[in-house]
Design a binder for these strands. Structure first.
Lengths: 167, 167
DNA sequence: TAATATCGACAACGTGATTGACGAAAAGGT
DNA sequence: ACCTTTTCGTCAATCACGTTGTCGATATTA
């Protein structure tokens, strides 16, 4: 068999679609949600948040974390995490404070602005999912989530999306 | 993007899951397919093909294309496309020939090896989709594809995935 | 013929990741 | 206590991959 460009047509029989469409559709769905969320964020005082930053802020978490820990959670080197934290700090989303109990550590903490963007993101994601429910119905959305959970191994269900494409 | 950890609970009312899970699940599904495909390709003589290269090879197509055209299809500059073509040429997946009818153009064409990787990719995608059908049932997979087609705007259904994340 | 547009290449640069090395500080074993 | 190992954050060099701008050569069009 083949696909798009190599053997156009010839497939998509009863099964539904050619195999190559499934990943494209999954990515398009992911991308449409992320794009729309960031469009909303940009309209509400957060024009500089990029997808990768959102993941990083997520990795900081409520209790704060060190750059090394953030790197581990994101699956990148501590150096790369440190640079990202610098940018986030420059944008006012996190602050770094010395850890009084460990002279080596500098704890990265979310600022009020950082919390705000995370709260707005959570609300935005919920709103976007509600839109999917409105169009498709709650059953179909639930079914999709359940099916994806069944097919996606835990190793793929992670926060280290950025930079993965060019591994 | 993101929230998770800032307002745990409080959500996920009747709908099913928290909103932030949907994009993560979509990405995880996409990623699991791409990862598995490239694992298979690596086992069958194509260890150097990376996701971005697959997209580029797809953009070359059966009839070949110029670097500029590939760039347009991929949504990147012609210079970037030219560099990618160089790598693909180094790996033996494409060849460049002068266009006798247009002294400016150099037509990029798939080599036998390039065709092979596309054919194997097509077969791999079909096999992977068949696996989803085996586990979930054909109806659910078809429903998922139809639902994603309904929710993903055409603008998101494109070949320019690489580098999008850090826009 | 002359003006405009396109192709492919080159150079310079930006960004975001990597590895390797380093000093400072903590933790652990003897 | 002391020495060793680990961890943290940072600096430096490098790589991968994209960008813009420029350029000569070639087509296309007015």
């Amino acid at each position: 068999m083949a696909e798009r460009g190599v053997e156009p047509g010839a497939r998509s029989s009863a099964g539904g679609g050619a195999g190559f469409e499934l990943p494209l559709l999954l990515f398009a769905g992911f991308r449409s949600i992320i794009d729309e969320l960031h469009r909303e964020l940009a309209e509400h005082g957060h024009p500089d948040v990029r997808p990768a930053y959102g993941f990083a802020l997520q990795a900081v978490g409520r209790d704060g974390a060190t750059a090394s820990e953030i790197g581990r959670r994101l699956g990148v080197s501590k150096q790369a995490a440190g640079k990202t934290v610098e940018k986030l700090e420059g944008l006012g989303y996190v602050e770094r404070v010395d850890d009084p109990r460990d002279g080596r550590r500098k704890l990265v903490r979310l600022t009020a602005r950082g919390i705000d963007v995370l709260v707005r993101s959570a609300e935005g994601f919920d709103r976007l999912r509600a839109e999917w429910v409105r169009v498709l119905g709650a059953d179909r959305v639930r079914a999709m989530e359940a099916d994806l959970r069944a097919m996606a191994p835990a190793s793929a269900f992670r926060l280290d999306a950025a930079g993965w494409f060019n591994d």
